[in-house]
Write a protein that binds this DNA or RNA. Structure first.
Length: 278
DNA sequence: ACGAGGTCCTGCGAGC
DNA sequence: TGCTCGCAGGACCTCG
């Protein structure tokens, strides 16, 4: 579920709460979420360790530990990360995958209903390999429209799919891909290698604008997503296309269309504004 | 090398 | 009411 703006919000909210805390009695309730680390090793490394900082890379939460390792959590569709008081209610314990005591500040809990989320424990070398597989961060100050176009333009695949390809660009998922393409007035199914440089400039600005606005709104809550303080985001109120199939285009009142033709994911667009052939 | 498609999970709402 | 089916914000892996 959470894409770049949601993870940015979670990290922003939780960072001041968890940074500098010593970790106590970690508990893992579902070992099937682990990648490249055993349960025994994860618990051993976490216990007594200290959180140096909380960061975001693409859609992933990165917990930097004093020991030098990084605990990486991919929230995927239904994952959430929340700090609860020391004792969890039954509701809070439900779907808990990993809970870690924070000395003096309750518990850090990774919850995930569908359990598609994953947990990684990486040393410097593992982290380097991990982060190098992911494309550039779209909101970095020095990221340019030219770089952006270079990441996409060699593919014959639909631009929407390419935009969501994490190896090409970090952090854009289905919601913001739909929104950015609408704003740039681009047909989501257009092959990436058939998009002009000026259209790439427009898409670049749209991607950055929509991500920034969504961060300001603390993310988009469709169902499960909550901020680090347990609140709903508010960007769902101003979505222009995502989830609005059958409703009128906010720009021209034409009925919006939803298809699953691109990579099997819900794609909503305005055929008139985005120049889609019917 | 690239792209298509399957897979990991559970919950929910629609439709019968 | 209760069942089945399809769908859901993601990313990885295998196959061709």
């Amino acid at each position: 579920m959470p894409e770049l703006p949601e993870v940015e919000t979670i990290v922003h909210d939780l960072s001041p709460v968890v940074t500098g805390r010593t970790l106590t009695s970690p508990r893992l309730h579902h070992a099937d979420v682990l990648r490249q680390v055993s349960k025994a090793r994860l618990l051993h490394v976490l216990h007594g360790n200290r959180i140096e900082g909380l960061e975001r890379r693409a859609k992933h939460v990165v917990v930097r530990l004093q020991s030098g390792e990084r605990l990486v959590i991919q929230l995927r569709m239904t994952g959430s990360l929340v700090v609860y008081p020391a004792h969890l209610t039954d509701d809070e314990r439900r779907y808990a995958v990993l809970q870690i005591g924070l000395r003096g500040a309750g518990q850090l809990v990774f919850r995930d209903v569908r359990r598609l989320g994953t947990i990684w424990l990486l040393d410097d070398e593992g982290w380097l390999a991990y982060t190098q597989r992911i494309g550039p961060e779209p909101l970095e100050d020095d990221f340019t429209s030219t770089q952006f176009a270079r990441q996409m333009q060699d593919s014959r695949q639909a631009i929407k799919k390419v935009l969501m390809d994490q190896r090409r660009l970090a952090g854009v998922g289905n919601i913001y891909a739909n929104e950015a393409l609408f704003r740039a007035r681009l047909d989501p199914s257009r092959p990436a290698n058939r998009i002009s440089q000026s259209q790439y400039r427009s898409l670049f600005r749209s991607v950055r604008a929509v991500l920034r606005e969504a961060i300001r709104a603390k993310g988009t809550t469709v169902r499960d997503y909550r901020t680090g303080t347990g609140q709903e985001g508010s960007f769902q109120r101003v979505l222009r296309v995502y989830g609005r199939g059958g409703m009128p285009c906010r720009r021209c009142r034409t009925t919006l269309t939803t298809t699953h033709a691109i990579d099997g994911r819900a794609t909503t667009f305005c055929w008139r504004c985005q120049g889609v052939r019917r």
